[in-house]
Amino acid sequence: MSLERNAPPDTYDHLPSVPSFTLTSEDVTDGEQMADTFADPSVGGGGKSPQLSWSGFPAETNSFVVTCYDPDAPTHSGFWHWVLVNVPVSVTSLAQGAQPPAGAFAVRNDYGTKEYGGAAPPKGDYPHRYLFTVHAVDVEQLDVTPDVSPAVVGFNLTFHTLARATIRPTYQIA
């Protein structure tokens, strides 16, 4: 059985269009292979989230949601690696390996944990894209709890996202 597949479109292509702002990282680069530090321990990685910083978001932003999603996972629904909700508007960066800042929380990722889960594409598969996205949100808190799924957070984001910024590094296991 071959693992050759066509890469699906970008996750946000089918959602309402919103403005962008600036998202940078000292650790990952758009279109470049991530270091093993950001891969899951199940594939020998360090399991740490990368450093992220953002600026230029709309003045009416009241909070942020930070996500990491693999649209290239061999599933019908991609794979959620990280969903960090209700990040205060005063927080405009996260350190490498960051825990949720005060007032924020992570919902269950597709590993079943409430934390960052590193990259772990199937060995020999093509490079997977990891969409690290910061969503600028128009409310201080999304009306969700830590027990909801990433899909419920995404549904709420559709109605509250003012702008979003994404870095798309890749990861592949040869």
Rank of each mutant, 00 (worst) to 15 (best):
M1Q: 07
L3A: 01
L3H: 01
N6D: 14
A7F: 02
P8E: 00
P8A: 02
P9C: 03
D10A: 12
Y12H: 11
Y12C: 02
Y12K: 07
D13V: 12
D13A: 13
H14S: 14
L15I: 15
S17C: 09
V18L: 15
S20V: 11
S20F: 07
T22I: 15
T22G: 08
L23I: 14
S25C: 07
D27P: 12
T29G: 04
G31I: 06
E32V: 11
E32M: 07
Q33K: 15
Q33I: 13
M34S: 07
D36N: 08
D36W: 05
D36Y: 05
T37M: 06
F38V: 04
F38A: 02
A39T: 01
A39Q: 01
S42Y: 01
G44W: 05
Q51L: 07
P58Q: 13
A59P: 12
V65R: 04
V66A: 09
T67S: 11
Y69C: 00
Y69P: 02
Y69F: 11
D70C: 04
T75M: 03
H76P: 04
W80Y: 06
H81I: 01
V83S: 03
L84Q: 12
V85G: 05
P88V: 10
S90G: 14
S90V: 14
S90I: 12
V91M: 11
T92D: 12
T92Q: 15
L94T: 07
L94P: 08
A95F: 06
Q96P: 06
P101E: 03
P101F: 05
A102L: 10
A104C: 09
F105G: 05
A106V: 09
N109T: 02
Y111H: 01
T113Y: 13
K114W: 03
K114H: 07
E115T: 10
E115A: 13
G117N: 00
G117W: 00
G118R: 04
G118Q: 04
P122E: 03
G124L: 02
D125S: 13
Y126C: 00
Y126F: 11
P127S: 08
L131R: 02
T133V: 05
A136P: 10
V137M: 09
V137T: 10
E140C: 08
P146I: 11
V148D: 05
S149L: 00
P150K: 00
G154D: 05
F155W: 15
F155L: 14
N156D: 13
N156K: 14
N156Q: 15
T158S: 10
F159D: 11
H160P: 09
T161K: 13
R164S: 05
T166I: 09
Q172D: 03
A174Y: 06
